[in-house]
Simulated assay, not measured.
Amino acid sequence: MTSSPRWFSRYQDGQRAEVWQEMRQLGSAVRESAWAGEAQLVCDEMARRARHNIEVIVERLSTAGYRFHDNNDEQTAVQPHYPPTAGAPELATWLEERFGAVPMTLLSWVRIVGDVWLVGTHPEWPASAAADPLVIGVEGSRYPDFSLRDYFDEEWTAWQGDPVGTFLLPLAPDRFHKDNVSGGGPYGVVLPDGCVDGLFHAEMTMPFVSYLNWVFGDGGFPWPSGDDRQWAVRRDLNKGLLRL
């Protein structure tokens, strides 16, 4: 690697896959390297691009008559995107203090993107909730009477009492629960992890940014729902979305 990797300018120029690969190869050492600031700039730009994609998808779904709702029988209407609150930077600090190390991409998401909930029903695609719509909840803005921070803390404490495997910070229900049927465990990020980009565990485990690119590549609905109408909806949703 050269003495100056120029990650941020190269990322902006379109060399995104190469930049992520180089940063991931450094592992947690990237935080102590001379290029930690460059890595942070890339992660923040990734988050800004992700927020743009979410805002575009929400606008397109709303225009199409999509009903954003809870994953329950009542299907209570919900707000699909909560931008970060003034407390988001403090939450990012708390996450690192509590879990030891948190991937830089997730910290950028907390500070720049916020919480997203795309579960709902499309008028031209009734099975849309079965297509694993994007959900990422870290700040917990959807739950004013419930503390996600307390929930994370309880999960961490329980895991430390019986530390089998790795700890998963739960960020979303699985694709079955999103469709209001019995399913498995939640999706989330493996912690602790001091790397630039952590592992996101969903139907398969992959880097968080790779997961997001997969989801946005299908307009926010990456899983086949068994409905032939889904391809047309996805085609309209993913037009012009940004690669992260």
Rank of each mutant, 00 (worst) to 15 (best):
W20D: 12
E38Y: 01
W214G: 09
R51E: 08
Q21G: 14
L41Y: 00
G217W: 03
L242I: 01
D145H: 14
N53K: 08
V110A: 08
R10E: 02
Q230L: 03
M46C: 09
I112S: 09
T93M: 11
A158N: 10
G14K: 09
P80T: 04
G188C: 14
R234N: 02
S33Y: 04
A29H: 05
R60D: 07
R142H: 04
W117H: 06
I112N: 07
P5K: 06
H69V: 11
G188I: 02
D153G: 04
P207R: 14
S3N: 10
G114A: 07
E22N: 10
P80M: 06
P170M: 04
S108C: 10
R48A: 09
E22V: 14
W125K: 03
T85P: 08
R229K: 15
G87F: 00
T105K: 04
A17Y: 06
Q160T: 08
D115E: 13
A17I: 03
N71K: 13
A202Q: 11
R175D: 03
E97D: 10
V138D: 02
A172M: 04
P173A: 10
R175A: 11
Q79W: 03
Q21P: 05
S33M: 05
G27Q: 05
P126D: 10
F176W: 07
A172F: 01
G137M: 12
W159R: 10
V42T: 02
H177S: 11
G137Q: 12
N53P: 06
W35P: 01
W156M: 13
L212N: 08
L26D: 01
I57C: 09
T166V: 12
W94V: 00
P173E: 12
I57G: 01
D132T: 00
D193A: 15
P170I: 03
R31P: 00
Q230G: 08
V56Q: 12
L191A: 14
E90K: 15
S4F: 07
P103C: 08
E18H: 14
V56G: 02
G100H: 07
G194S: 03
N238Q: 10
P163F: 05
R234M: 10
Q40W: 01
V119C: 14
R175I: 05
P224E: 13
S210M: 09
G188Y: 05
Q25T: 09
R98T: 12
S62H: 03
A88K: 02
D227V: 04
L212F: 07
V209R: 14
D227R: 15
T166G: 09
L237G: 08
A29C: 08
Q40R: 15
P222T: 08
Q79G: 02
F68P: 04
W231F: 08
W7N: 01
R243G: 11
F99W: 11
G100E: 05
L118I: 04
R234A: 06
R229G: 10
R31S: 13
H122M: 11
V135P: 02
T93H: 12
R234L: 11
S9H: 07
F216V: 12
E90W: 00
D227Y: 07
S28E: 15
A131Y: 00
V78Y: 10
R243S: 11
V215H: 06
C43F: 04
L169Y: 00
V56M: 10
F152T: 05
R6A: 07
V116L: 06
F152A: 05
I54H: 07
V209E: 15
D70L: 12
A34P: 12
P163C: 12
P170C: 11
L169H: 02
F216K: 05
E18G: 10
K178R: 14
V102E: 04
